[in-house]
Design a protein around this nucleic acid. Structure first.
Lengths: 226, 226
DNA sequence: GTTATATTTGAAAAAATTATGAAAACTGCC
DNA sequence: GGCAGTTTTCATAATTTTTTCAAATATAAC
Protein backbone atom coordinates (compact mmCIF):
# COMPACT_ATOMS: atom_id res chain seq x y z
CA UNK A 1 0.00 0.00 0.00
CA UNK A 2 0.99 3.62 -0.34
CA UNK A 3 3.37 5.43 2.00
CA UNK A 4 2.37 8.87 3.27
CA UNK A 5 4.44 11.57 4.96
CA UNK A 6 2.50 13.82 7.29
CA UNK A 7 4.13 17.16 8.06
CA UNK A 8 2.57 19.31 10.78
CA UNK A 9 3.85 20.88 13.97
CA UNK A 10 0.75 20.00 15.94
CA UNK A 11 0.85 16.56 17.45
CA UNK A 12 -2.94 16.32 17.55
CA UNK A 13 -3.26 16.90 13.81
CA UNK A 14 -0.59 14.33 12.96
CA UNK A 15 -2.31 11.86 15.27
CA UNK A 16 -5.71 12.30 13.64
CA UNK A 17 -4.35 11.99 10.13
CA UNK A 18 -2.31 8.95 11.07
CA UNK A 19 -5.33 7.27 12.61
CA UNK A 20 -7.51 7.75 9.55
CA UNK A 21 -4.75 7.02 7.08
CA UNK A 22 -3.78 3.79 8.77
CA UNK A 23 -7.40 2.80 8.86
CA UNK A 24 -7.42 3.21 5.08
CA UNK A 25 -4.40 0.97 4.87
CA UNK A 26 -1.67 3.53 4.28
CA UNK A 27 1.70 3.51 5.97
CA UNK A 28 2.41 6.81 7.73
CA UNK A 29 5.60 8.68 8.62
CA UNK A 30 5.70 12.01 10.39
CA UNK A 31 7.72 15.21 10.38
CA UNK A 32 7.19 18.22 12.62
CA UNK A 33 8.39 20.97 10.32
CA UNK A 34 9.50 21.74 6.78
CA UNK A 35 13.16 21.25 7.53
CA UNK A 36 12.62 17.77 8.87
CA UNK A 37 10.32 16.96 5.95
CA UNK A 38 13.02 17.81 3.45
CA UNK A 39 15.56 15.68 5.28
CA UNK A 40 13.28 12.67 5.41
CA UNK A 41 12.39 13.06 1.73
CA UNK A 42 16.08 13.10 0.85
CA UNK A 43 16.46 9.67 2.42
CA UNK A 44 13.14 8.03 1.67
CA UNK A 45 10.53 8.08 -1.03
CA UNK A 46 6.82 8.53 -0.40
CA UNK A 47 3.74 8.18 -2.48
CA UNK A 48 2.18 11.33 -1.12
CA UNK A 49 2.95 14.15 1.30
CA UNK A 50 0.37 15.95 3.43
CA UNK A 51 1.88 19.22 4.61
CA UNK A 52 0.72 22.10 6.75
CA UNK A 53 1.47 25.60 5.51
CA UNK A 54 2.17 27.26 8.83
CA UNK A 55 5.06 25.63 10.63
CA UNK A 56 8.04 26.80 12.67
CA UNK A 57 11.55 26.46 11.31
CA UNK A 58 10.49 26.18 7.66
CA UNK A 59 6.96 26.77 6.32
CA UNK A 60 5.10 24.41 4.02
CA UNK A 61 5.49 26.44 0.86
CA UNK A 62 9.24 26.69 1.15
CA UNK A 63 9.48 23.03 1.99
CA UNK A 64 7.27 22.14 -0.96
CA UNK A 65 9.42 24.19 -3.30
CA UNK A 66 12.56 22.57 -1.96
CA UNK A 67 11.27 19.00 -2.13
CA UNK A 68 10.07 19.53 -5.66
CA UNK A 69 13.64 20.15 -6.67
CA UNK A 70 14.50 16.50 -6.26
CA UNK A 71 11.20 14.65 -5.88
CA UNK A 72 7.93 14.70 -7.78
CA UNK A 73 5.92 13.24 -4.94
CA UNK A 74 2.34 14.57 -4.92
CA UNK A 75 1.70 17.06 -2.14
CA UNK A 76 -1.54 18.05 -0.44
CA UNK A 77 -1.33 21.32 1.46
CA UNK A 78 -3.23 22.08 4.65
CA UNK A 79 -3.89 25.59 5.83
CA UNK A 80 -6.14 27.84 7.81
CA UNK A 81 -9.17 29.14 6.01
CA UNK A 82 -9.30 32.33 4.08
CA UNK A 83 -5.76 32.82 2.93
CA UNK A 84 -6.55 33.20 -0.72
CA UNK A 85 -3.14 34.44 -1.67
CA UNK A 86 -1.60 31.41 -0.09
CA UNK A 87 -3.91 29.10 -1.97
CA UNK A 88 -2.90 30.44 -5.31
CA UNK A 89 0.69 30.49 -4.27
CA UNK A 90 0.43 26.84 -3.29
CA UNK A 91 -0.97 25.88 -6.63
CA UNK A 92 1.73 27.70 -8.45
CA UNK A 93 4.30 25.79 -6.51
CA UNK A 94 2.81 22.62 -7.79
CA UNK A 95 1.02 21.22 -4.80
CA UNK A 96 -1.58 18.78 -6.04
CA UNK A 97 -4.45 19.73 -3.82
CA UNK A 98 -5.40 22.06 -1.06
CA UNK A 99 -7.41 21.35 2.05
CA UNK A 100 -8.62 24.03 4.40
CA UNK A 101 -8.36 23.67 8.18
CA UNK A 102 -10.35 22.68 10.06
CA UNK A 103 -10.82 19.82 7.63
CA UNK A 104 -12.93 16.72 7.87
CA UNK A 105 -10.61 13.70 8.05
CA UNK A 106 -12.91 11.83 5.73
CA UNK A 107 -12.67 14.48 3.11
CA UNK A 108 -8.93 14.54 3.43
CA UNK A 109 -8.85 10.80 2.84
CA UNK A 110 -10.98 11.17 -0.26
CA UNK A 111 -8.54 13.71 -1.57
CA UNK A 112 -5.59 11.52 -0.73
CA UNK A 113 -7.14 8.68 -2.64
CA UNK A 114 -8.02 10.96 -5.56
CA UNK A 115 -4.50 12.38 -5.79
CA UNK A 116 -2.93 8.94 -5.52
CA UNK A 117 -5.19 7.58 -8.20
CA UNK A 118 -4.35 10.49 -10.42
CA UNK A 119 -0.64 10.03 -9.77
CA UNK A 120 -0.83 6.33 -10.53
CA UNK A 121 -2.49 7.13 -13.80
CA UNK A 122 0.43 9.28 -14.82
CA UNK A 123 2.97 6.81 -13.78
CA UNK A 124 2.71 4.64 -16.89
CA UNK A 125 5.75 6.40 -18.20
CA UNK A 126 7.74 6.28 -14.98
CA UNK A 127 7.29 2.63 -14.08
CA UNK A 128 7.08 2.17 -10.36
CA UNK A 129 5.17 -0.29 -8.29
CA UNK A 130 2.19 -0.49 -10.57
CA UNK A 131 -0.39 -2.98 -9.49
CA UNK A 132 -3.68 -3.68 -11.14
CA UNK A 133 -6.52 -5.00 -9.00
CA UNK A 134 -10.07 -6.02 -9.73
CA UNK A 135 -12.08 -7.71 -7.04
CA UNK A 136 -9.96 -10.61 -5.80
CA UNK A 137 -7.59 -10.46 -8.73
CA UNK A 138 -4.35 -8.57 -8.49
CA UNK A 139 -1.57 -8.20 -11.00
CA UNK A 140 1.75 -6.78 -9.90
CA UNK A 141 3.54 -5.86 -13.08
CA UNK A 142 6.90 -5.03 -11.60
CA UNK A 143 7.00 -8.06 -9.32
CA UNK A 144 5.51 -10.29 -12.01
CA UNK A 145 3.03 -11.73 -9.55
CA UNK A 146 -0.60 -12.58 -10.09
CA UNK A 147 -2.80 -13.39 -7.13
CA UNK A 148 -6.41 -14.43 -6.77
CA UNK A 149 -7.95 -13.92 -3.34
CA UNK A 150 -4.46 -13.52 -1.97
CA UNK A 151 -3.29 -16.83 -3.34
CA UNK A 152 -0.45 -16.72 -5.79
CA UNK A 153 -1.13 -18.02 -9.28
CA UNK A 154 1.68 -19.81 -11.04
CA UNK A 155 1.99 -18.81 -14.63
CA UNK A 156 4.43 -19.75 -17.30
CA UNK A 157 6.43 -16.97 -18.93
CA UNK A 158 4.22 -16.87 -21.99
CA UNK A 159 1.11 -16.75 -19.88
CA UNK A 160 2.52 -13.83 -17.94
CA UNK A 161 3.43 -11.90 -21.03
CA UNK A 162 0.13 -12.48 -22.73
CA UNK A 163 -1.83 -11.70 -19.62
CA UNK A 164 0.16 -8.60 -18.72
CA UNK A 165 -0.27 -7.21 -22.18
CA UNK A 166 -3.99 -7.79 -22.09
CA UNK A 167 -4.41 -6.28 -18.62
CA UNK A 168 -2.31 -3.26 -19.52
CA UNK A 169 -4.65 -2.73 -22.44
CA UNK A 170 -7.78 -3.60 -20.56
CA UNK A 171 -11.04 -2.60 -22.15
CA UNK A 172 -9.55 -2.46 -25.60
CA UNK A 173 -10.32 -4.80 -28.43
CA UNK A 174 -7.03 -6.50 -29.25
CA UNK A 175 -6.75 -8.20 -32.59
CA UNK A 176 -5.06 -11.56 -32.93
CA UNK A 177 -2.39 -9.96 -35.04
CA UNK A 178 -1.76 -7.31 -32.44
CA UNK A 179 -1.54 -9.82 -29.63
CA UNK A 180 0.77 -12.10 -31.54
CA UNK A 181 3.07 -9.38 -32.70
CA UNK A 182 3.21 -7.84 -29.23
CA UNK A 183 3.71 -11.04 -27.28
CA UNK A 184 5.54 -13.24 -29.77
CA UNK A 185 7.10 -10.60 -31.93
CA UNK A 186 6.28 -9.36 -35.37
CA UNK A 187 8.34 -12.15 -36.89
CA UNK A 188 6.31 -15.00 -35.51
CA UNK A 189 5.51 -17.48 -38.24
CA UNK A 190 4.04 -20.23 -36.15
CA UNK A 191 0.70 -21.91 -36.24
CA UNK A 192 -2.50 -19.91 -36.42
CA UNK A 193 -3.91 -21.66 -33.37
CA UNK A 194 -1.02 -21.00 -31.01
CA UNK A 195 -2.71 -17.94 -29.59
CA UNK A 196 -5.91 -19.87 -28.94
CA UNK A 197 -4.03 -22.49 -27.04
CA UNK A 198 -2.39 -19.91 -24.82
CA UNK A 199 -5.69 -18.18 -24.21
CA UNK A 200 -7.01 -21.54 -23.17
CA UNK A 201 -4.13 -22.08 -20.72
CA UNK A 202 -4.50 -18.55 -19.40
CA UNK A 203 -8.21 -18.96 -18.82
CA UNK A 204 -7.52 -22.17 -16.96
CA UNK A 205 -5.08 -20.34 -14.70
CA UNK A 206 -7.52 -17.53 -14.08
CA UNK A 207 -10.31 -19.71 -12.78
CA UNK A 208 -13.41 -17.66 -12.13
CA UNK A 209 -11.74 -14.62 -13.65
CA UNK A 210 -11.39 -16.37 -16.97
CA UNK A 211 -14.61 -14.65 -17.96
CA UNK A 212 -12.67 -11.38 -17.99
CA UNK A 213 -11.11 -12.59 -21.20
CA UNK A 214 -13.77 -12.10 -23.81
CA UNK A 215 -13.56 -13.63 -27.25
CA UNK A 216 -14.19 -11.16 -30.04
CA UNK A 217 -15.08 -13.40 -32.91
CA UNK A 218 -13.31 -12.49 -36.10
CA UNK A 219 -11.15 -9.99 -34.24
CA UNK A 220 -9.32 -11.28 -31.21
CA UNK A 221 -9.78 -10.88 -27.48
CA UNK A 222 -10.42 -8.26 -24.85
CA UNK A 223 -9.64 -8.19 -21.14
CA UNK A 224 -12.42 -6.47 -19.25
CA UNK A 225 -13.51 -5.84 -15.72
CA UNK A 226 -17.25 -6.04 -16.25
CA UNK B 1 -8.05 27.61 -26.11
CA UNK B 2 -10.24 25.42 -23.94
CA UNK B 3 -14.01 25.40 -23.99
CA UNK B 4 -15.85 25.55 -20.67
CA UNK B 5 -19.45 24.84 -19.83
CA UNK B 6 -20.78 26.74 -16.82
CA UNK B 7 -23.89 25.27 -15.23
CA UNK B 8 -25.65 27.32 -12.56
CA UNK B 9 -29.18 28.58 -12.12
CA UNK B 10 -28.06 31.98 -10.89
CA UNK B 11 -27.39 34.45 -13.64
CA UNK B 12 -24.99 36.43 -11.46
CA UNK B 13 -22.76 33.44 -10.84
CA UNK B 14 -22.64 32.48 -14.50
CA UNK B 15 -21.83 36.07 -15.35
CA UNK B 16 -18.93 36.28 -12.92
CA UNK B 17 -17.44 32.99 -14.00
CA UNK B 18 -17.83 33.89 -17.64
CA UNK B 19 -16.10 37.21 -17.09
CA UNK B 20 -13.10 35.69 -15.37
CA UNK B 21 -12.91 32.70 -17.68
CA UNK B 22 -13.01 34.79 -20.81
CA UNK B 23 -10.37 37.03 -19.34
CA UNK B 24 -8.21 33.92 -19.03
CA UNK B 25 -8.88 33.14 -22.66
CA UNK B 26 -11.43 30.36 -22.34
CA UNK B 27 -14.55 30.07 -24.45
CA UNK B 28 -17.65 29.82 -22.29
CA UNK B 29 -21.07 28.26 -22.80
CA UNK B 30 -23.81 28.33 -20.22
CA UNK B 31 -26.62 26.11 -18.98
CA UNK B 32 -29.13 26.93 -16.28
CA UNK B 33 -29.78 23.47 -14.90
CA UNK B 34 -28.62 19.88 -15.04
CA UNK B 35 -31.11 18.89 -17.71
CA UNK B 36 -29.90 21.55 -20.05
CA UNK B 37 -26.28 20.69 -19.27
CA UNK B 38 -26.82 17.08 -20.31
CA UNK B 39 -28.48 18.12 -23.54
CA UNK B 40 -25.69 20.48 -24.46
CA UNK B 41 -23.07 17.89 -23.62
CA UNK B 42 -24.76 15.38 -25.89
CA UNK B 43 -24.37 17.76 -28.77
CA UNK B 44 -21.08 19.44 -28.02
CA UNK B 45 -17.84 18.53 -26.40
CA UNK B 46 -16.17 20.65 -23.72
CA UNK B 47 -12.78 20.60 -22.10
CA UNK B 48 -14.18 21.24 -18.65
CA UNK B 49 -17.52 21.68 -16.90
CA UNK B 50 -18.12 23.89 -13.87
CA UNK B 51 -21.34 22.83 -12.25
CA UNK B 52 -23.36 23.94 -9.25
CA UNK B 53 -24.72 21.21 -6.98
CA UNK B 54 -28.02 22.85 -6.07
CA UNK B 55 -30.13 23.52 -9.14
CA UNK B 56 -33.78 23.25 -10.08
CA UNK B 57 -34.90 20.61 -12.58
CA UNK B 58 -31.87 18.36 -12.12
CA UNK B 59 -29.16 18.74 -9.49
CA UNK B 60 -25.46 18.76 -10.21
CA UNK B 61 -24.73 15.28 -8.89
CA UNK B 62 -27.34 13.61 -11.04
CA UNK B 63 -26.23 15.60 -14.06
CA UNK B 64 -22.61 14.68 -13.37
CA UNK B 65 -23.48 11.01 -13.16
CA UNK B 66 -25.47 11.20 -16.39
CA UNK B 67 -22.85 13.09 -18.35
CA UNK B 68 -20.17 10.68 -17.23
CA UNK B 69 -22.08 7.96 -19.00
CA UNK B 70 -21.05 9.28 -22.36
CA UNK B 71 -18.39 11.90 -21.73
CA UNK B 72 -15.25 11.93 -19.66
CA UNK B 73 -15.06 15.70 -19.51
CA UNK B 74 -13.50 16.89 -16.24
CA UNK B 75 -16.04 18.42 -13.88
CA UNK B 76 -15.56 20.94 -11.07
CA UNK B 77 -18.44 21.06 -8.64
CA UNK B 78 -19.60 24.18 -6.81
CA UNK B 79 -21.61 24.09 -3.63
CA UNK B 80 -22.50 25.86 -0.46
CA UNK B 81 -20.08 25.44 2.41
CA UNK B 82 -20.27 22.74 4.97
CA UNK B 83 -21.97 19.88 3.19
CA UNK B 84 -19.38 17.25 3.93
CA UNK B 85 -21.50 14.39 2.71
CA UNK B 86 -21.90 16.09 -0.61
CA UNK B 87 -18.20 16.57 -0.96
CA UNK B 88 -17.48 12.92 -0.58
CA UNK B 89 -20.38 12.01 -2.77
CA UNK B 90 -19.08 14.33 -5.44
CA UNK B 91 -15.68 12.75 -5.41
CA UNK B 92 -17.12 9.31 -5.68
CA UNK B 93 -19.10 10.34 -8.70
CA UNK B 94 -15.90 11.28 -10.36
CA UNK B 95 -15.98 15.04 -10.23
CA UNK B 96 -12.43 16.26 -10.51
CA UNK B 97 -12.47 19.04 -7.99
CA UNK B 98 -14.71 20.74 -5.55
CA UNK B 99 -15.03 24.43 -4.83
CA UNK B 100 -17.03 25.82 -1.94
CA UNK B 101 -19.33 28.80 -2.36
CA UNK B 102 -18.79 31.64 -1.90
CA UNK B 103 -15.61 31.09 -3.85
CA UNK B 104 -13.03 33.53 -5.02
CA UNK B 105 -13.09 33.69 -8.81
CA UNK B 106 -9.34 33.74 -8.84
CA UNK B 107 -9.12 30.51 -6.92
CA UNK B 108 -11.67 28.92 -9.20
CA UNK B 109 -9.57 29.89 -12.20
CA UNK B 110 -6.50 28.36 -10.60
CA UNK B 111 -8.40 25.15 -10.13
CA UNK B 112 -9.69 25.22 -13.68
CA UNK B 113 -6.18 25.56 -14.95
CA UNK B 114 -4.93 22.80 -12.64
CA UNK B 115 -7.64 20.36 -13.69
CA UNK B 116 -7.13 21.10 -17.37
CA UNK B 117 -3.41 20.61 -17.05
CA UNK B 118 -3.95 17.33 -15.27
CA UNK B 119 -6.46 16.14 -17.86
CA UNK B 120 -4.22 17.02 -20.75
CA UNK B 121 -1.31 15.26 -19.12
CA UNK B 122 -3.21 12.03 -18.71
CA UNK B 123 -4.47 11.83 -22.19
CA UNK B 124 -1.07 11.15 -23.69
CA UNK B 125 -0.69 7.87 -21.94
CA UNK B 126 -4.23 6.64 -22.25
CA UNK B 127 -5.42 5.50 -25.57
CA UNK B 128 -7.86 8.07 -26.74
CA UNK B 129 -11.02 6.07 -26.82
CA UNK B 130 -13.37 7.48 -29.34
CA UNK B 131 -16.95 6.92 -28.38
CA UNK B 132 -20.04 7.91 -30.27
CA UNK B 133 -23.21 8.55 -28.30
CA UNK B 134 -26.72 9.44 -29.22
CA UNK B 135 -29.41 9.33 -26.58
CA UNK B 136 -29.14 5.92 -24.93
CA UNK B 137 -27.00 4.50 -27.69
CA UNK B 138 -23.25 4.42 -27.37
CA UNK B 139 -20.62 2.98 -29.65
CA UNK B 140 -17.11 2.50 -28.33
CA UNK B 141 -14.92 1.95 -31.34
CA UNK B 142 -11.73 1.06 -29.51
CA UNK B 143 -13.38 -1.40 -27.15
CA UNK B 144 -15.71 -2.66 -29.86
CA UNK B 145 -18.69 -2.33 -27.57
CA UNK B 146 -22.18 -1.11 -28.38
CA UNK B 147 -24.56 -0.33 -25.55
CA UNK B 148 -28.18 0.73 -25.40
CA UNK B 149 -29.26 2.33 -22.14
CA UNK B 150 -26.15 0.94 -20.55
CA UNK B 151 -26.89 -2.61 -21.62
CA UNK B 152 -24.45 -4.30 -23.91
CA UNK B 153 -25.57 -5.35 -27.34
CA UNK B 154 -24.03 -8.48 -28.75
CA UNK B 155 -23.19 -8.14 -32.38
CA UNK B 156 -21.55 -10.46 -34.84
CA UNK B 157 -18.36 -9.32 -36.57
CA UNK B 158 -20.17 -8.35 -39.75
CA UNK B 159 -22.80 -6.46 -37.82
CA UNK B 160 -20.07 -4.53 -36.01
CA UNK B 161 -18.23 -3.68 -39.15
CA UNK B 162 -21.31 -2.63 -41.01
CA UNK B 163 -22.61 -0.63 -38.08
CA UNK B 164 -19.28 1.00 -37.28
CA UNK B 165 -18.90 2.07 -40.86
CA UNK B 166 -22.37 3.55 -40.97
CA UNK B 167 -21.96 5.37 -37.65
CA UNK B 168 -18.61 6.76 -38.69
CA UNK B 169 -20.34 8.10 -41.76
CA UNK B 170 -23.49 9.14 -40.01
CA UNK B 171 -25.80 11.46 -41.88
CA UNK B 172 -24.39 10.42 -45.21
CA UNK B 173 -26.23 8.53 -47.93
CA UNK B 174 -24.29 5.32 -48.42
CA UNK B 175 -24.92 3.42 -51.62
CA UNK B 176 -25.22 -0.33 -51.59
CA UNK B 177 -22.09 -0.55 -53.68
CA UNK B 178 -20.19 1.65 -51.27
CA UNK B 179 -21.31 -0.31 -48.22
CA UNK B 180 -20.50 -3.64 -49.80
CA UNK B 181 -17.11 -2.63 -51.03
CA UNK B 182 -16.21 -1.03 -47.70
CA UNK B 183 -17.45 -3.79 -45.44
CA UNK B 184 -17.03 -6.88 -47.60
CA UNK B 185 -14.26 -5.69 -49.86
CA UNK B 186 -14.25 -4.64 -53.47
CA UNK B 187 -13.98 -8.26 -54.54
CA UNK B 188 -17.24 -9.47 -53.11
CA UNK B 189 -19.22 -11.49 -55.62
CA UNK B 190 -21.95 -12.80 -53.40
CA UNK B 191 -25.67 -12.53 -53.58
CA UNK B 192 -27.42 -9.23 -54.20
CA UNK B 193 -29.46 -9.59 -51.07
CA UNK B 194 -26.65 -10.23 -48.61
CA UNK B 195 -26.48 -6.60 -47.57
CA UNK B 196 -30.23 -6.50 -46.96
CA UNK B 197 -30.00 -9.48 -44.70
CA UNK B 198 -27.28 -7.88 -42.62
CA UNK B 199 -29.21 -4.65 -42.38
CA UNK B 200 -32.08 -6.73 -41.11
CA UNK B 201 -29.93 -8.40 -38.46
CA UNK B 202 -28.44 -5.07 -37.47
CA UNK B 203 -31.83 -3.46 -37.08
CA UNK B 204 -32.93 -6.34 -34.94
CA UNK B 205 -29.92 -5.81 -32.67
CA UNK B 206 -30.56 -2.10 -32.44
CA UNK B 207 -34.10 -2.39 -31.15
CA UNK B 208 -35.66 1.04 -30.84
CA UNK B 209 -32.66 2.59 -32.52
CA UNK B 210 -33.25 0.56 -35.67
CA UNK B 211 -35.10 3.58 -36.98
CA UNK B 212 -31.74 5.34 -37.16
CA UNK B 213 -30.99 3.19 -40.16
CA UNK B 214 -33.01 4.70 -42.95
CA UNK B 215 -33.62 2.94 -46.23
CA UNK B 216 -32.87 5.04 -49.27
CA UNK B 217 -34.83 3.25 -51.92
CA UNK B 218 -32.87 2.70 -55.05
CA UNK B 219 -29.71 4.01 -53.41
CA UNK B 220 -28.75 2.34 -50.15
CA UNK B 221 -28.94 3.29 -46.47
CA UNK B 222 -28.14 6.10 -44.09
CA UNK B 223 -27.48 6.16 -40.37
CA UNK B 224 -28.98 9.26 -38.85
CA UNK B 225 -29.55 10.76 -35.42
CA UNK B 226 -32.85 12.50 -36.06
C1' DG C 1 -55.91 0.12 -58.77
C1' DT C 2 -52.27 -2.12 -61.40
C1' DT C 3 -47.75 -3.03 -62.43
C1' DA C 4 -42.96 -3.15 -62.17
C1' DT C 5 -39.32 -2.74 -59.13
C1' DA C 6 -37.08 -2.80 -54.73
C1' DT C 7 -36.76 -4.23 -50.05
C1' DT C 8 -37.73 -7.09 -46.01
C1' DT C 9 -37.95 -11.34 -43.91
C1' DG C 10 -37.57 -16.30 -42.30
C1' DA C 11 -35.43 -20.50 -42.63
C1' DA C 12 -31.95 -23.52 -43.76
C1' DA C 13 -27.57 -24.61 -45.85
C1' DA C 14 -22.87 -23.43 -46.09
C1' DA C 15 -18.85 -21.42 -44.34
C1' DA C 16 -15.88 -19.68 -40.98
C1' DT C 17 -13.94 -19.27 -36.52
C1' DT C 18 -12.73 -20.69 -32.01
C1' DA C 19 -12.13 -24.25 -28.24
C1' DT C 20 -10.05 -28.27 -26.84
C1' DG C 21 -7.29 -32.42 -26.02
C1' DA C 22 -3.39 -34.89 -27.01
C1' DA C 23 0.93 -35.46 -28.84
C1' DA C 24 5.24 -33.69 -30.49
C1' DA C 25 8.98 -30.46 -30.18
C1' DC C 26 11.62 -27.63 -27.67
C1' DT C 27 14.21 -25.60 -23.51
C1' DG C 28 17.13 -25.24 -19.69
C1' DC C 29 19.23 -27.83 -16.23
C1' DC C 30 21.41 -31.52 -13.83
C1' DG D 1 21.48 -37.97 -22.38
C1' DG D 2 17.48 -37.65 -19.60
C1' DC D 3 14.12 -35.05 -17.05
C1' DA D 4 10.47 -31.71 -16.04
C1' DG D 5 8.23 -28.09 -17.53
C1' DT D 6 6.88 -25.16 -21.42
C1' DT D 7 5.55 -24.16 -25.96
C1' DT D 8 3.86 -25.40 -30.33
C1' DT D 9 1.44 -28.13 -33.61
C1' DC D 10 -2.47 -30.27 -35.28
C1' DA D 11 -6.80 -32.77 -35.88
C1' DT D 12 -11.36 -32.76 -34.28
C1' DA D 13 -15.28 -30.91 -31.94
C1' DA D 14 -18.20 -27.25 -30.79
C1' DT D 15 -20.05 -23.04 -31.83
C1' DT D 16 -21.21 -18.99 -34.29
C1' DT D 17 -21.69 -16.41 -38.38
C1' DT D 18 -22.55 -15.67 -43.15
C1' DT D 19 -24.80 -16.50 -47.18
C1' DT D 20 -28.39 -18.03 -50.10
C1' DC D 21 -32.95 -18.01 -51.75
C1' DA D 22 -37.73 -17.71 -52.25
C1' DA D 23 -41.91 -15.79 -50.49
C1' DA D 24 -43.92 -11.77 -48.57
C1' DT D 25 -44.19 -6.98 -48.27
C1' DA D 26 -43.60 -2.26 -49.50
C1' DT D 27 -43.02 1.68 -52.79
C1' DA D 28 -43.40 4.56 -56.71
C1' DA D 29 -44.95 5.37 -61.23
C1' DC D 30 -48.42 4.96 -64.31
Amino acid sequence: MSRLLVVDDEFRIRQIIRKYAEFEGYTVEEAVDGMQAIEICRKEEFDLIIMDVMMPELDGFSACREIRKFRSTPIIMLSARGEEYDKIHGFELGSDDYVVKPFSPKELMMRVSAVLKRANGNQNAEQKNDVFTYKGLSVDFSARIVTIDGKRIDMTPKEYELFFYMVKNKGLALTREKLISEVWGYDFFGDERTLDTHIKLLRKSLGEYSKCIVTLRGVGYRFETV
